[in-house]
């Protein structure tokens, strides 16, 4: 009886393991192409373009991914890669340069959908140079007892989700704005922090002092290392 249970367990694990495999469409090749330009429309060469499928979540090894193909952009920023057409609900094209640039993802479901003409043309991939913003808020005026601030800035990730060839606005998240806020008082009068955003971004610094009407200050992030100092 014990032996039977062992055999059944092994077979079950094997079935689960094999069922995780990505199927491929016979007699098909997919072409993915595009061009990588920075925020000044200058081509970026050597950009890594990876195409993979996410097969699911394994309780043993986390997310299972299958690399379908990868390539690098040329001197003019263009790239193209040919691959077998994997049928998967998480078909991903990822464009990444390095930590100094934003990351782009194209996602779609190819389980029952074949891209028109077996072509995914990403066009101009919206890659942007990143900036590291360091801010320092200090209290200098003794009469300012309460300070509340909010920083609103674009994120560094662009993920476009397509459903049967059409951009799904609801699922897409491309340089969406995010906020961070904090209240300062006499016990915690100062604050420092850091965040990454896109070069050239407009960061909104909104604050109120002692409950007075809020003030909005716009910061143009024009350097890759941006320092912002504010005192109240």
């Amino acid at each position: 009886m014990k032996l039977n249970l062992k055999i059944i367990s092994i077979l079950a694990i094997l079935v689960v393991y094999l069922s995780c495999e990505v199927p491929y469409r016979d007699n098909a090749r997919l072409l993915i192409k595009g061009q990588v330009l920075d925020e000044n429309s200058q081509p970026i060469s050597g950009v890594n373009i990876s195409v993979y499928a996410r097969e699911g979540i394994s309780f043993l090894s986390g997310t299972l991914t299958t690399l379908l193909n990868e390539t690098e952009s040329l001197a003019d920023g263009s790239f193209s890669t040919i691959m077998l057409l994997a049928l998967d609900q998480n078909f991903v094209v990822e464009v990444s340069v390095n930590d100094n640039y934003s990351r782009y993802q194209y996602r779609t479901d190819t389980t029952d959908f074949v891209p028109e003409d077996y072509l995914i043309d990403l066009g101009t991939v919206p890659i942007q140079r990143l900036s590291s913003v360091n801010y320092n808020i200090t209290k200098e005026n003794a009469s300012s007892s309460e300070f509340f601030y909010t920083l609103t800035y674009p994120t560094t990730q662009c993920t476009e989700v397509y459903s049967e060839g059409e951009l799904s606005i609801d699922d897409t998240s491309c340089y969406e704005t995010t906020t961070r806020s904090r209240s300062l008082n006499t016990n915690n009068p100062n604050d420092t922090g850091n965040f990454a955003t896109t070069l050239g971004a407009e960061v909104l610094f909104t604050y109120t002092i002692n409950g007075q009407p809020q003030v909005v200050q716009t910061l143009i992030i024009d350097q890759t290392d941006y320092e912002f100092n504010f005192s109240y």
């Binding site: 007699n27 098909a28 090749r29 997919l30 072409l31 040919i82 003409d117 077996y118 072509l119």
Partner: peptide, 14 residues
């Protein structure tokens, strides 16, 4: 002569 289908711009190569 294959039955491979792909993008028109590279179809001749397959």
């Amino acid at each position: 002569t294959t039955k491979i289908e792909t993008a028109p711009e590279i179809q001749n190569n397959f």
